[in-house]
């Protein structure tokens, strides 16, 4: 599973970082999302999905399969 962030949409709410710091961080310049591991392990799937659903901008999405 892979998570993709759209930096044009991200406004730096950092909800993803709060909810799943294993996969999401934020940069020190604009405070926008930094995806630490876009291909995340299955045990983090619930947390990543929660982070995606909590993004107030809808800037995150999960893509199935490595080709996505």
């Amino acid at each position: 599973m892979k998570v993709i962030a759209n930096l044009h949409i991200c406004q730096g709410h950092a909800r993803c970082e709060d909810l799943c710091p294993e996969v999401f961080s934020t940069d020190e310049i604009e405070g926008k999302v930094v995806v630490l591991q876009s291909e995340f392990p299955p045990e983090l799937e619930d947390k990543v999905r929660l982070a995606v659903r909590n993004c107030p901008e809808g800037a995150l999405r999960i893509a199935k399969g490595a080709a996505a």
Binding site: E28, I29, G31
Partner: peptide
């Protein structure tokens, strides 16, 4: 842009 670095989660 000027203010942002001072208010990031990191800061």
């Amino acid at each position: 842009t000027l203010l942002a670095p001072m208010f990031t989660p990191h800061a």
